[in-house]
Structures are given as structure tokens and as C-alpha cells.
Design a protein around this nucleic acid. Structure first.
Lengths: 364, 364
DNA sequence: TAATTTAACGCAATCGGTTGCATAAATATT
DNA sequence: AATATTTATGCAACCGATTGCGTTAAATTA
């Protein structure tokens, strides 16, 4: 159990210790203060700070120096109110503490920051209801753009309407909707599923199982399609018993599924798991039962999570350019201009993935 | 290599397809629109929406219904400007795509969201310079509170001054400064280091190495102190050769360090690593050399990263309540009131950790 | 030299809520 | 019934930056 307690420590000295008991916060410096100090109008100060062309370089220099000297800091709320935009990118994802997601956010934040944009995050926890209320909060902040990876539950898309009506650029990443005219950044899940399955076939697998995710989410549906087509094209009969539909592709679900498969009279000799967590659990579970990997059972996962390279035997998997995906999504928003954006067109960016072969399929 | 390409797809139909070619964005509804519609003053609308006590329940109901009907959404920029606060919590951390950090952020976001606060994140990438400029951006957004885990480089603390001067609550988490009168949320690194080391001693280790992090960061300094004191209290001589100082505690550094240790004429029989990444690398590296774990070499890590339970043998480690840490940090900000906050007092919350014993130290 | 252009800056409205103070109407008190 | 309270609402200033339009003085051109 993790408990906690509080210590109060009185310091005699320290940084910024105040003399007066009831110290007032320092008044914030505004452009009006600068204006008064330099005998300019606030307009001139504002323009000077923004390097407006109608302000002389001499004045600009003077203003900026004074601003620095007085510790002036712009109030982005005021500017945002006036311009009706906040230079902020909003993100809605399921949960942040997953390797794939946090990498993507890292990519978004990096590109956004370089362009002077802030990033607000919100977690849906894979609940539709949370996604809806989070989007409202993001809208209320007048974000300049929205990046979304859909919650597992989301089917109805009405909550995106306000953003579209206001011309706020909307980018779906990874878990995207169908038939929605917005930016999308995805990987080619179909090909990835096909290639993962074909990899197992190439390694001599004859009975290949699939750990499938929720089929109303494009990523899992397409991976499964790729799996099915790879089987068909190689004249391997599809056995519905070998296709397990997961709810969350968790470790526990993976163990259950593996146990179930291994109990079959005619168990599989290969597994293509739609994520690494379940794939790793399959490795551990099969090993425990004394099944040799990859000789008796070859396994390939998806995402290239850190755990996939640590498990033994290391899990073959499909790479997933999460950080790049985030960077591109952010760029879509930064480069978006309502003028040149055609509302009847979807711009889809498809990133390619590749097989990362490791020991779990290393045979023949 | 990961390449990418763009597909442009023309849709004939779809959601929200516009009729006119040059659709204007819909005008946003403001409280003035509601006022006009209901024949009230904007003040009344504002108060009604905020459940002000001087507005009759009947009016409140009417206003809210109309707001819902017309799709009114508050503009938090305007409110924030007026009130000089934004109901937003700013976060500054090294990188988001690390398990420990993203769990903490997840905790922050969850608590913040429930209180109607937004969360802005910024990554320093462990660079002092980035931390400084990120804090400026957060300040400019007039965040209501700031949660910081210091970058590896940060020594000078002047960039926190503006927040303190403005009475903006500041919470340091995990990697905290010394002698700074603010909120802090940490774990008891000293005890954790002590207990981890003592655990190895209890398991019969006589020569215990330590993978130490940068010593100007409290967390690593204290873990090392705990390590040293545990040795001393058990009459084990400290051998400087066995203490490796890391720069980033990365996998690669871990391998190098392990190799170096194992080449010693008198190699260690136990390692206490200040994080799991390096600890896992030690396991893999030692195994490759045919060293038996835990019999010949027992290893314990820190953080309870997912990889620690996957590696074989599984890595013993110290739990780290990252999510709880985030929740508490957020609560500190939410509960902060400038009235009752004494500037000459540090409020430090210390969370306890515990040993998670796994196979890598499971002997005797 | 007169006329015109250009450069540099100021005025004042605006963005959308919030809030202290004033006011009018309704209710309570004596 | 006259006065004192309470209730419900409006007025107008304010938060800090931005920007269209106007103005003045200097520079350029005819």
C-alpha cells in the first residue's frame, strides 16, 4: 500500500522570502505601462512588439528594450480574445500513459512549440461521454486546431460539428472515423496486417490465429482484413475459432485467449496480435505451457512497444511511427489556411510501417 | 525506413458537406445574443449562467435553456482576461514519452479535468534553455498553476520568479529544487535507496554496485545516499569502483556500465540501479555473459516500469506512485488559496514506496 | 516651389465576459 | 399606510491587446 504524509518545514531563509506579511502581487506590466514610460501610444507599442512594418526600426528597438527591462510579458488571453484564436492545439486521446500515445503527443508538442503554439491535452479514457465533454472544454478555450484519436466507444460524431462549423482545423490520427471530410493521419493498417500475416506464412505457419481489436475502430478492422486476405491469397482456410475478438487487447485478455487457443484440438502454429501487449502475454503464456517459440508457435505483434524488445524471445512486431504521426498532425494544423482548404476534400496522410523481425518468428 | 505519402480523395457525400462554395463560419453566440433574445441585460445572462444567487431560479432556467438551444459556448479567453486567470494548469517536464512521466501527467489531467481545469504540457527535453522558454509561454497564457519536474540541466531557478511574484501556485514533483519555498511532491528517495540496498544485503550480497544518476538532481543524490548508508550500517565497505555515475541512465549506458563491472577482478554480486531501464540492460547484459541471475548477481531497479516485469528474470524494483503524485500535485494547485498560503513555508508531500520483489533478487 | 507620396504614429472601437454600484419592484415590518 | 428590507435586474467600466482609419511631418516628385 502506498500511503502519504505531509511535512511542514519552516525555513528561515530561502529564495524570494517576503518581508511584509501581506505582500501584494506585483502589478503586471502591460503595453499601456510601456506606452506611458516611452511616451508612445499603446498602438505603437503593440505594433513595435510585433515588428509591424510601419514602425521605425529605432522605435522597435527602443520598445523591445524597455519591455525587456520592465519585464513585460504579453497576455495571450487578451490577444486571443481580440483575434478569436489562441495559438493553442487541443488533443483528445484515450489515455496518455501508453507508449504509443505519449510518443505521438511528444511529436505534437515538439512541432507546436517550435511554432509558438501551446498544447492542451485531454483524456477520454476511451469513454464517449468524456470525449464529448472534453471537446466542449477545448472548444471553450478557442483552440486553433484539434487533434483526435477516437475513443473506443465513439460512434456518433456530432460533437465535432462545432469545430467544423467554425473552420477549426481537425486532424484525426490513428483511430479515425469513416467518411468525414477532414485531415487524417494514419498508417496503412491493411497492408501492415497483410504483411504481418504473410510474414508468418513465409515462416511456414499453416494455422495462424489473430488477436483482433474492436471492429468498429478502423485500425483493428483493417488489420484483420489484411490478415484475412493474406490467408486467402495463400490458400490457407480461415478458421473462425482462431480469430479472437478482444475488447481492450490487454495483458489479461491475451492470457485468456492464448489459453483458449492452446486448448484447441488443433492449436495454431502462429499468432498475429493486433498489439504488443497481447502479443507479449501470448509469449509468456505459451512459454509457461512449455511450448517452444518460435518453433512450435510463432508470434508477431503490433506497435513496437518497449516491452516487445525486452520479452524473451523478443517479439517480432510492426513498427509504428507514432512520433512522426504526431509531428505531421501538428503540421497539418499549423499549415492550415481556411482560404485554400476545400471543405469537400479529405486530406489523408498514410505512413508506412515495416516488419521488425525478432526472435519470436525467427525460424527456418 | 518510414516514408509517407498523401492521398487526396474527393467525396461526393459526407457529413457537413457544404452547399455554398464559400461558406462563412457561423457567427458565434455570445451572452449579448442571449441577452437580446431574452430581453435581459448581458449582466443578467452572465450571472444566470454562473448560478449567481441574486438571479431568480426561473430566470436561470430560462437563460440556460436558451443557451443550450442556441448552442452558446462560453469564451474562456474573455473570462480569463477579465479575471486574470485561465483555469489552466501548466506542466513542464523533460519528455512526455516515458512511462513514469506520462503516468504522472495522466494523474494531473484527470484531477484537473474533474475540476474544470485544462492542462497545458511542455517538454524541456532535459534542456535548461527549453525549460526557460517553455515557462515563458506558460506564463503568457496566464496559467493558474504550474507543475514542474526539473530538467536534468537546471540549476539556476530565476525563471520561476515571475510565477512566485504573481502568487501563481508552483508545485515541484519528483525532481525538485532545494531550499525553495513552494509546494513539493516527492517520494522518499533516501529510504527507497536504503531499502533497495538493504534488500540486496538481506539476500546475501556482499559487493553491491550502484548505477547512480546525475548527482545534482535530488532524486539520484538521495538514492545514492540511501545506498551508502545501508552499506555503512551493515559494515560493508564502500568501493568507489562499484559506483557508476550515469548521465541519462539509458539502456546503452547500462550495458557499458555492466560490462565494465563484470570485467573487474572482483566483480559485484549485486546491483542497485537508480532506474529500471539501466537495470534491465544489466540483466540482459549479464545473462549474455552467462552470469546467473540472481544466484551470481542480484539486481534491483527503480520505478516499476512495464519492462521490469517482462524481462527475464523479472526485475525487482521500487514502486513509484507516479499517477498519485500527479493527482496530489494537481490538488495542491486546485486547493491553493493565496489568502491562507504562507510564503515562508514549504509544503512537502512525501509519498512512500515499497519493494516489488521479483525473480532478479529471488534467492536464499 | 507647389503638389504628392511616404513614413511613423495616434485615436478609438473591438473582442466577450465580469462585477461594483445603482435602481426598481416586491415583500416584510412596525 | 408608511417605512425598511429583500429580490431581481441593469448600467457601465474594465481586463489587455489589436487594427482600420486618420493625421502629421518629412521626403520625393513634378
Amino acid at each position: 500500500m502506498v500511503g502519504w504524509f505531509i511535512i511542514r518545514i519552516d525555513h528561515q531563509a530561502g529564495y524570494f522570502v517576503t518581508k511584509e506579511k501581506d505582500l501584494q502581487v506585483k502589478k503586471e506590466i502591460t503595453i499601456y505601462d510601456l506606452a506611458k514610460e516611452l511616451n508612445y501610444s499603446p498602438s505603437t507599442i503593440s505594433r513595435a512588439l510585433n515588428n509591424h512594418k510601419s514602425i521605425s526600426p529605432k522605435t522597435i528597438k527602443k520598445v523591445k528594450e524597455q519591455a525587456e527591462k520592465m519585464g513585460y510579458r504579453p497576455n495571450t488571453l487578451a490577444a486571443g480574445l481580440r483575434n478569436n484564436k489562441s495559438n493553442t492545439i487541443g488533443i483528445s486521446i484515450s489515455r496518455i500513459n501508453r507508449h504509443f500515445i505519449s510518443s505521438m503527443i511528444s511529436g505534437i508538442e515538439e512541432t507546436a512549440r517550435k511554432a509558438g503554439f501551446n498544447v492542451i491535452i485531454s483524456q477520454s479514457d476511451d469513454k464517449y461521454e468524456n470525449e464529448v465533454s472534453n471537446l466542449k472544454a477545448l472548444y471553450d478555450s478557442r483552440i486553433s486546431g484539434l487533434i483526435v484519436s477516437l475513443s473506443m466507444e465513439t460512434v456518433n460524431m456530432d460533437h465535432f460539428k462545432p469545430f467544423i462549423n467554425q473552420g477549426i482545423p481537425l486532424v484525426f490520427v490513428d483511430r479515425v472515423p469513416q467518411g468525414f471530410n477532414t485531415y487524417k493521419v494514419v498508417i496503412d493498417n491493411y497492408s501492415a496486417g497483410y504483411n504481418a500475416t504473410k510474414h508468418l506464412i513465409d515462416k511456414g505457419c499453416k494455422r495462424i490465429a489473430h488477436f483482433a481489436g474492436a471492429q468498429h475502430r478502423n485500425v483493428y478492422e483493417e488489420r484483420k482484413k489484411g490478415y484475412l486476405d493474406a490467408l486467402k491469397e495463400h490458400q490457407i482456410p480461415v478458421d473462425e475459432q482462431l480469430i479472437i475478438h478482444f475488447k481492450t487487447l490487454s495483458f489479461e485478455e491475451g492470457e485468456k485467449a492464448t489459453n483458449k487457443l492452446l486448448k484447441l484440438p488443433n492449436p495454431p502454429d502462429g499468432i498475429f496480435s493486433a498489439n504488443d501487449t497481447a502479443g507479449v502475454s501470448a509469449i509468456l503464456c505459451a512459454k509457461k505451457k512449455g511450448i517452444k517459440i518460435p518453433e512450435e508457435l510463432a508470434i508477431i505483434g503490433f506497435n513496437d512497444d518497449p516491452i516487445s524488445s525486452i520479452v524473451e524471445p523478443a517479439l517480432s512486431t510492426m513498427s509504428h511511427p507514432a512520433m512522426k504521426m504526431g509531428k505531421i498532425a501538428a503540421k497539418r494544423i499549423l499549415n492550415h489556411s481556411s482560404k485554400n482548404h476545400d471543405e469537400e476534400v479529405s486530406e489523408i496522410t498514410v505512413l508506412s510501417t515495416e516488419i521488425i523481425q525478432r526472435a519470436s518468428t525467427d525460424r527456418k
